[in-house]
Protein backbone atom coordinates (compact mmCIF):
# COMPACT_ATOMS: atom_id res chain seq x y z
CA UNK A 1 0.00 0.00 0.00
CA UNK A 2 1.47 3.27 -1.05
CA UNK A 3 1.29 6.31 1.09
CA UNK A 4 -0.49 8.23 -1.69
CA UNK A 5 -3.41 5.79 -1.82
CA UNK A 6 -3.91 6.10 1.92
CA UNK A 7 -3.09 9.75 2.14
CA UNK A 8 -6.35 10.44 3.95
CA UNK A 9 -4.74 8.65 6.93
CA UNK A 10 -1.68 10.89 7.07
CA UNK A 11 -1.00 14.46 8.06
CA UNK A 12 1.36 16.42 5.85
CA UNK A 13 3.84 16.97 8.62
CA UNK A 14 4.67 15.82 12.12
CA UNK A 15 3.68 18.06 14.99
CA UNK A 16 0.40 19.75 15.69
CA UNK A 17 0.33 22.95 13.67
CA UNK A 18 -1.53 22.32 10.43
CA UNK A 19 -5.32 22.36 9.97
CA UNK A 20 -6.49 18.77 9.41
CA UNK A 21 -9.33 18.69 6.82
CA UNK A 22 -12.67 17.73 8.34
CA UNK A 23 -13.04 14.48 6.37
CA UNK A 24 -9.55 13.35 7.26
CA UNK A 25 -10.21 14.07 10.92
CA UNK A 26 -13.44 12.05 10.84
CA UNK A 27 -11.69 9.08 9.24
CA UNK A 28 -8.80 9.30 11.69
CA UNK A 29 -10.99 9.52 14.76
CA UNK A 30 -13.27 6.72 13.59
CA UNK A 31 -10.47 4.30 12.85
CA UNK A 32 -8.73 5.09 16.17
CA UNK A 33 -11.98 4.45 18.04
CA UNK A 34 -12.57 1.28 16.03
CA UNK A 35 -9.16 -0.09 16.95
CA UNK A 36 -9.81 0.68 20.61
CA UNK A 37 -13.27 -0.90 20.48
CA UNK A 38 -11.79 -4.00 18.88
CA UNK A 39 -9.26 -4.50 21.67
CA UNK A 40 -11.74 -3.75 24.45
CA UNK A 41 -14.57 -5.88 23.07
CA UNK A 42 -12.14 -8.77 22.69
CA UNK A 43 -10.95 -8.33 26.28
CA UNK A 44 -14.50 -8.19 27.64
CA UNK A 45 -15.61 -11.16 25.56
CA UNK A 46 -12.87 -13.24 27.19
CA UNK A 47 -14.05 -12.21 30.65
CA UNK A 48 -16.06 -14.98 32.24
CA UNK A 49 -18.42 -12.82 34.27
CA UNK A 50 -22.12 -12.91 35.13
CA UNK A 51 -23.35 -9.44 34.23
CA UNK A 52 -26.10 -8.05 36.41
CA UNK A 53 -27.07 -4.53 35.38
CA UNK A 54 -30.53 -4.57 36.98
CA UNK A 55 -29.20 -4.69 40.54
CA UNK A 56 -26.99 -1.69 39.83
CA UNK A 57 -29.79 0.17 38.02
CA UNK A 58 -31.81 0.14 41.25
CA UNK A 59 -29.15 2.33 42.82
CA UNK A 60 -29.04 4.86 39.96
CA UNK A 61 -29.97 7.69 42.32
CA UNK A 62 -26.73 7.10 44.26
CA UNK A 63 -24.74 7.51 41.06
CA UNK A 64 -26.52 10.76 40.21
CA UNK A 65 -26.17 12.29 43.66
CA UNK A 66 -22.53 11.21 43.92
CA UNK A 67 -21.77 12.67 40.50
CA UNK A 68 -23.37 15.98 41.48
CA UNK A 69 -21.38 16.11 44.73
CA UNK A 70 -18.16 15.42 42.83
CA UNK A 71 -19.09 18.13 40.31
CA UNK A 72 -19.74 20.66 43.10
CA UNK A 73 -16.59 19.79 45.07
CA UNK A 74 -14.43 19.84 41.93
CA UNK A 75 -15.82 23.15 40.69
CA UNK A 76 -15.36 24.84 44.07
CA UNK A 77 -11.87 23.51 44.70
CA UNK A 78 -10.88 24.24 41.10
CA UNK A 79 -11.74 27.92 41.48
CA UNK A 80 -10.12 28.11 44.92
CA UNK A 81 -6.97 26.29 43.76
CA UNK A 82 -6.51 28.77 40.92
CA UNK A 83 -6.61 31.68 43.40
CA UNK A 84 -4.29 29.89 45.85
CA UNK A 85 -1.92 28.88 43.05
CA UNK A 86 -1.72 32.39 41.65
CA UNK A 87 -1.11 33.85 45.12
CA UNK A 88 1.61 31.28 45.86
CA UNK A 89 3.29 31.88 42.49
CA UNK A 90 3.34 35.64 43.04
CA UNK A 91 4.60 35.18 46.61
CA UNK A 92 7.55 33.28 45.14
CA UNK A 93 8.53 36.53 43.41
CA UNK A 94 7.76 38.75 46.37
CA UNK A 95 10.54 41.04 47.64
CA UNK A 96 9.27 40.42 51.21
CA UNK A 97 11.34 37.38 52.18
CA UNK A 98 9.11 35.68 54.83
CA UNK A 99 6.29 35.65 52.29
CA UNK A 100 8.59 34.27 49.61
CA UNK A 101 9.78 31.42 51.85
CA UNK A 102 6.25 30.72 53.07
CA UNK A 103 5.31 30.16 49.43
CA UNK A 104 8.27 27.86 48.87
CA UNK A 105 7.68 25.82 52.03
CA UNK A 106 3.98 25.46 51.20
CA UNK A 107 4.74 24.09 47.74
CA UNK A 108 7.42 21.67 48.97
CA UNK A 109 5.28 20.35 51.83
CA UNK A 110 2.16 19.79 49.78
CA UNK A 111 3.94 18.29 46.81
CA UNK A 112 6.13 16.07 48.95
CA UNK A 113 3.40 14.39 51.05
CA UNK A 114 0.58 12.05 50.01
CA UNK A 115 -2.86 13.60 49.54
CA UNK A 116 -4.32 10.77 51.60
CA UNK A 117 -2.32 11.86 54.65
CA UNK A 118 -3.15 15.52 54.06
CA UNK A 119 -6.89 14.76 53.98
CA UNK A 120 -6.74 12.72 57.20
CA UNK A 121 -4.58 15.25 59.06
CA UNK A 122 -6.55 18.29 57.88
CA UNK A 123 -9.87 16.75 58.83
CA UNK A 124 -9.17 14.79 62.02
CA UNK A 125 -6.48 17.06 63.46
CA UNK A 126 -6.41 20.61 62.09
CA UNK A 127 -10.12 21.15 61.36
CA UNK A 128 -11.08 19.37 64.58
CA UNK A 129 -8.82 21.71 66.59
CA UNK A 130 -10.48 24.75 64.99
CA UNK A 131 -13.94 23.28 65.51
CA UNK A 132 -14.79 22.89 61.81
CA UNK A 133 -16.89 19.75 61.53
CA UNK A 134 -18.16 20.11 57.97
CA UNK A 135 -16.33 17.39 56.05
CA UNK A 136 -17.42 18.74 52.67
CA UNK A 137 -15.92 22.16 53.40
CA UNK A 138 -12.69 20.70 54.80
CA UNK A 139 -12.42 18.26 51.90
CA UNK A 140 -12.87 21.00 49.30
CA UNK A 141 -10.28 23.22 50.99
CA UNK A 142 -7.76 20.36 51.28
CA UNK A 143 -8.14 19.59 47.59
CA UNK A 144 -7.78 23.28 46.71
CA UNK A 145 -4.56 23.59 48.74
CA UNK A 146 -3.22 20.38 47.21
CA UNK A 147 -3.88 21.40 43.62
CA UNK A 148 -2.84 24.99 44.38
CA UNK A 149 0.74 23.88 45.06
CA UNK A 150 1.01 22.28 41.62
CA UNK A 151 -0.75 25.18 39.91
CA UNK A 152 1.58 27.69 41.54
CA UNK A 153 4.55 25.85 40.03
CA UNK A 154 2.87 25.79 36.62
CA UNK A 155 2.19 29.53 36.79
CA UNK A 156 5.68 30.28 38.12
CA UNK A 157 7.28 28.34 35.27
CA UNK A 158 5.04 30.24 32.84
CA UNK A 159 6.05 33.63 34.27
CA UNK A 160 9.74 32.74 34.34
CA UNK A 161 9.63 31.58 30.72
CA UNK A 162 9.08 35.21 29.72
CA UNK A 163 12.64 36.42 29.20
CA UNK A 164 14.26 39.02 31.41
CA UNK A 165 14.97 41.09 28.29
CA UNK A 166 11.26 41.50 27.60
CA UNK A 167 10.73 42.90 31.08
CA UNK A 168 13.64 45.29 30.54
CA UNK A 169 12.19 46.38 27.18
CA UNK A 170 8.80 46.92 28.79
CA UNK A 171 10.39 49.11 31.44
CA UNK A 172 12.37 50.94 28.76
CA UNK A 173 9.22 51.95 26.87
CA UNK A 174 7.75 53.20 30.14
CA UNK A 175 5.21 50.50 31.06
CA UNK A 176 4.19 50.30 34.73
CA UNK A 177 4.60 46.90 36.48
CA UNK A 178 0.83 46.38 36.17
CA UNK A 179 0.93 47.16 32.44
CA UNK A 180 3.94 44.88 32.00
CA UNK A 181 2.06 41.95 33.55
CA UNK A 182 -1.19 42.77 31.79
CA UNK A 183 0.09 43.32 28.23
CA UNK A 184 3.46 41.55 28.04
CA UNK A 185 3.64 38.70 30.55
CA UNK A 186 0.03 37.54 30.94
CA UNK A 187 -0.85 36.76 27.26
CA UNK A 188 2.29 34.66 26.84
CA UNK A 189 1.86 32.94 30.19
CA UNK A 190 -1.79 32.09 29.44
CA UNK A 191 -0.87 30.28 26.28
CA UNK A 192 2.01 28.36 27.82
CA UNK A 193 0.29 27.20 31.01
CA UNK A 194 -3.02 26.12 29.52
CA UNK A 195 -2.07 22.53 28.59
CA UNK A 196 -0.47 21.65 31.98
CA UNK A 197 -3.27 23.52 33.77
CA UNK A 198 -5.94 21.45 32.02
CA UNK A 199 -4.08 18.29 33.01
CA UNK A 200 -3.89 19.48 36.60
CA UNK A 201 -7.63 20.24 36.67
CA UNK A 202 -8.40 16.78 35.31
CA UNK A 203 -6.32 15.14 38.02
CA UNK A 204 -7.95 17.39 40.63
CA UNK A 205 -11.32 15.98 39.61
CA UNK A 206 -10.05 12.42 39.88
CA UNK A 207 -8.22 13.14 43.16
CA UNK A 208 -11.53 14.23 44.69
CA UNK A 209 -12.31 10.50 44.93
CA UNK A 210 -9.80 10.30 47.81
CA UNK A 211 -12.20 12.34 49.93
CA UNK A 212 -14.13 9.11 50.40
CA UNK A 213 -11.77 8.26 53.27
CA UNK A 214 -13.38 10.98 55.39
CA UNK A 215 -16.83 9.72 54.32
CA UNK A 216 -17.57 12.50 51.84
CA UNK A 217 -20.36 10.89 49.86
CA UNK A 218 -18.93 11.58 46.41
CA UNK A 219 -19.07 9.69 43.12
CA UNK A 220 -16.42 7.04 43.79
CA UNK A 221 -17.61 6.25 47.32
CA UNK A 222 -21.18 5.89 46.10
CA UNK A 223 -20.09 3.54 43.33
CA UNK A 224 -18.10 1.52 45.88
CA UNK A 225 -21.19 1.37 48.08
CA UNK A 226 -23.29 0.10 45.18
CA UNK A 227 -20.58 -2.49 44.59
CA UNK A 228 -20.72 -3.46 48.26
CA UNK A 229 -24.50 -3.88 48.15
CA UNK A 230 -24.79 -5.67 44.81
CA UNK A 231 -21.40 -7.44 44.40
CA UNK A 232 -21.46 -6.26 40.78
CA UNK A 233 -18.03 -4.71 40.42
CA UNK A 234 -17.82 -4.02 36.69
CA UNK A 235 -21.38 -2.75 36.54
CA UNK A 236 -20.66 -0.32 39.38
CA UNK A 237 -17.31 0.94 38.12
CA UNK A 238 -17.88 1.27 34.37
CA UNK A 239 -20.49 4.05 34.89
CA UNK A 240 -17.92 5.62 37.22
CA UNK A 241 -15.39 5.86 34.39
CA UNK A 242 -17.97 7.42 32.07
CA UNK A 243 -19.05 9.89 34.76
CA UNK A 244 -15.48 11.11 35.29
CA UNK A 245 -14.93 11.39 31.53
CA UNK A 246 -18.03 13.57 31.35
CA UNK A 247 -16.32 15.92 33.81
CA UNK A 248 -12.78 15.91 32.40
CA UNK A 249 -13.55 16.03 28.66
CA UNK A 250 -15.21 19.49 28.78
CA UNK A 251 -12.14 20.80 30.60
CA UNK A 252 -9.72 19.60 27.96
CA UNK A 253 -12.04 20.93 25.22
CA UNK A 254 -12.19 24.33 26.91
CA UNK A 255 -8.41 24.33 27.18
CA UNK A 256 -8.05 23.55 23.45
CA UNK A 257 -10.41 26.39 22.63
CA UNK A 258 -8.52 28.87 24.83
CA UNK A 259 -5.22 27.72 23.35
CA UNK A 260 -6.37 28.68 19.86
CA UNK A 261 -7.71 31.98 21.20
CA UNK A 262 -4.35 32.93 22.67
CA UNK A 263 -2.39 31.63 19.71
CA UNK A 264 -1.84 35.15 18.34
CA UNK A 265 0.50 35.88 21.20
CA UNK A 266 3.38 33.81 19.90
Amino acid sequence: MSRRRFQILFARSRGNHEEIPRFGRAVGVTSALFLLALVLSFAFSRLNYGWNWEAVYQYRRMFVSGWLITLAISAASLAASLVIGLAAALSHRSPFLPLRYLGKIYVEFIRGTPLLVQILVFFYVVADAFGIGNRYLVGTLTLAFFAGAYISEIIRAGIESVGESQLDSARAIGLTPYQTYRYVVFPQVMRRILPPLAGQFASLIKDSSLLSIIAVSEFTLNAQEVNAFTYSTMESYLPLALGYLALTLPISMLSKYLETRYRYAS
Binding site: L120, I214, A215
Partner: peptide, 18 residues
Protein backbone atom coordinates in the same frame (compact mmCIF):
# COMPACT_ATOMS: atom_id res chain seq x y z
CA UNK B 1 -24.73 7.59 57.53
CA UNK B 2 -20.94 8.00 57.31
CA UNK B 3 -19.37 5.33 55.15
CA UNK B 4 -15.68 4.81 55.97
CA UNK B 5 -12.95 2.68 54.49
CA UNK B 6 -11.10 1.98 57.71
CA UNK B 7 -12.29 0.73 61.06
CA UNK B 8 -9.87 3.13 62.77
CA UNK B 9 -11.43 6.15 61.04
CA UNK B 10 -14.91 5.06 62.09
CA UNK B 11 -13.74 4.78 65.72
CA UNK B 12 -12.16 8.24 65.45
CA UNK B 13 -15.48 9.68 64.26
CA UNK B 14 -17.12 8.41 67.46
CA UNK B 15 -14.21 9.49 69.68
CA UNK B 16 -14.34 13.04 68.27
CA UNK B 17 -18.13 13.16 68.56
CA UNK B 18 -18.67 13.52 64.82
Amino acid sequence: MLVLDKEAAAVLEVVQGK
